[in-house]
Structure formats: C-alpha cells, structure tokens
Amino acid sequence: MADAVALLLALQMGDSAFPSGGFGFSWGLETLKADGLVRDGAGVTAFATAQLTRRWASADRPVLRAALAAQGDIDSLGRLDREVEAMSLASEQREGSRRLGRALVRSHVTMGTPGAAAFQAAQRSGRVLGHLPVAQGVVWGGAGLAREAAEAVSAFVVAAGIGQAGVRLALIGPVEAQAMIAALRQVIAAVLARPCPERPHAFVPAAEIAVMRHETGDARLFAN
C-alpha cells in the first residue's frame, strides 16, 4: 500500500496537468525550428537527448539532489540558487527557470505542501531566487517524494515538456512524441545509474545560442 501511495505521488508530481507553467517554455526549440536547425521528430529527439544528458544530468540533477537534502535550510538553498543563476548564461534560460520555480512553489503553497510557504516567503524577500531544480527539491521533498523518484520525475518532466513543445510547434506528432519519451526512458535510466556529479555544469551550446536568439526573434509562442 505504501508503494502505491509513493507511485501515485510521483505520478501527480510528474503530471503535465499539474499547474506549474511548463507549457509556456521550449528551451530554445522554437528558435531552432525558426532557424531550420530542427525540422522533424528526429531533431526533437536529438534536442531532448542533449537536454537530458548534457544539461539535466550534470546541472539540474545535482542541484535537485542538494535541494532535497537541504530541506528547510534557506541559506543553503540560497547558495544553490545563486550557483544556478551564475551558470545560466542566456537571460531567458535564467528567467525561465526562476519563473517556473515560482509557479511550482505557488501551486504547492496553495495546496499546503510543507515547506512551500517558507520558501515562497524567502523568494519574495530576496533571500532565494527560486530556480526550478531548487524549487522542485523543496516542494517535492516537502510532499514526501523520495530522492530516486524525484530525480526520475524531474528528468521525465524535461522529456515530456520537450515532446509537448515539439507537438505544438508541429515538429513531431503526438503519438510520435510518446514514442520518443518511451525511448528516452532508457536514456534517463542510464543517467540515473551513473554517479551524480557534485558540482553542476552544462554544455548545450546550440540550445543556449537559440535561447539567446529567442530574446529578439519574431517567434514568440513560447517564453524561451
């Protein structure tokens, strides 16, 4: 029974219907399409794979893990946050991560998730910035999600979000997107089986340049 409760919690935290704003972000995919650099489902899959293996695995994962371990320690969470801020070169990447962190925390404050209100108060007073992986660690830890499940859900949210953005950009079909997410399961599992890096780092230059170009581009269905 306890396993069923844990599984249901993980499903809810990873549900694309959970109000947390992710549908408004493409993380560079909109610009890569406009520039003709991603044209089809294979391109979306390559983009998602790079985001998972070269950003999520080395940047979001260690931050999420540290945030889960720092429950309630606002000063530690603030240090993590500033590290994410410093390593996010493109402004729409930085701002997007902060907006999504605030949106996620806001929903959890309304739901009464333990720790969410204190973190939101720290956000509003400027003690923390509330970047997404930090916010995920706070609210998912508060909700009772175990570390392994939290990491799997966080990576799944990246894959599913890119799939949805790809569908709305008409780059990939809705069932094709699900097939992509199914294939990425093995990619995510392989990442989770590896040791977690201690210090966050990321290297996805094409996506970062696309996010920078998005700031002044005409394509604005998405926030980045």
């Binding site: 549908f23 408004g24 806001r106 929903s107 604005r220 926030a223």
Partner: peptide
C-alpha cells in the same frame, strides 16, 4: 506580457500559474 506556449485556454484556465506569477 505572458507567453501562452500556443495554449490560450491553458494559460487562463487549466494552468494559470504564469499569469498568477
């Protein structure tokens, strides 16, 4: 301005968090 990710319904109904933010 709040971008709607091509989902004008969603941003005001199913997931209004970006507008609330």
């Amino acid at each position: 301005a709040v971008e709607a990710g091509a989902c004008p319904h969603t941003v005001i109904r199913e997931d209004p968090t970006l507008n609330l933010d």
